[in-house]
Amino acid sequence: MEIKEVKEGLYYYGGDYYTKNYVPGKKVYGEKLLTIDGVEYRRWDAFRSKLAGALKKGLKDFPFSKKAEILYLGASTGTTVSHLSDICEDGVIYAVEHAPQMMEKLMKLAERRDNIVPILADARMPTEYEDIGEVGVLYQDVAQPDQVRILLLNERKFLKDGGSAMLCLKTHSIDVTKEKEETLKGAKEELKTRLSIEEVIDLDPYDKEHYFIAMRK
């Protein structure tokens, strides 16, 4: 079976997505490693990464490339960040995380991957990291009640015109009393004041509480 590059830096093999390992021989979160023709790939687990889940559910908009500049809000321990590091090998990922325990693991990841810039900061306060300048991609996975406002705050400050924004929307973090479809509707109305919504994907069964929203500025 042949491994196929389906988008820049993104590969498909045996029903799963893979990325070329930026640090051959090293796993990040226990993922499967696959070597074909002397090249090592990492399996992108859709149950561990919402972006991989969105790809498995048919996401078409994939703005990541070899030289992409990305602002990633809610980087956690770096599961998804690590795959973006594989793809954006000559780019940069500004990985913002506010929890010191998560940041410790993220910094260890960045020691081996020099295209990751860990930033210990609150995504509600973009002035804390304003010196990064503009980026072409804004990605957010922050489970807070004001997650839409956080995205728009950062979009105004950092996202280039024509750039891409991606939001992992956790509806129960916004309002646990409402049906998730109702919360999604309100979030879309707010997002549309600044951005063009290209795709909305329900991440079930990979993640039953999140929608993945792809947008353009």
Rank of each mutant, 00 (worst) to 15 (best):
I197F: 01
M103V: 15
S164Y: 13
I132L: 03
E199V: 02
E128Q: 15
L51C: 05
G15D: 07
G162I: 13
L84H: 05
E134F: 06
M215T: 11
V176E: 13
K178H: 13
D207L: 10
Q144W: 07
L195I: 10
P100W: 00
A46D: 07
Y94F: 15
K178G: 10
E209C: 05
T177V: 03
A68F: 04
D146L: 01
N21D: 04
L184H: 11
G38D: 10
H83W: 01
L109Y: 02
K32W: 00
E31T: 06
Y11R: 08
T171E: 12
K66F: 12
V96Y: 00
K108N: 10
H172I: 06
I116R: 00
E31D: 07
D161P: 12
A110T: 14
V117I: 15
G74Q: 08
G136H: 02
F212Y: 12
K185H: 11
E179C: 04
Q140V: 02
T183I: 15
Y206F: 15
P24T: 10
K56E: 14
E182Y: 07
E89A: 09
Q101F: 07
R124Q: 06
F64L: 09
L203W: 06
E2N: 12
M125G: 03
L195F: 03
L169Q: 10
R112K: 13
T35N: 11
R194W: 01
K192R: 13
L151F: 01
V148E: 01
L84R: 04
V135W: 00
L184E: 13
A143H: 11
V200Y: 03
G15A: 08
D16M: 13
A46N: 02
K50G: 03
R124C: 05
R194P: 00
I132W: 00
E134T: 15
N115C: 11
E181Q: 14
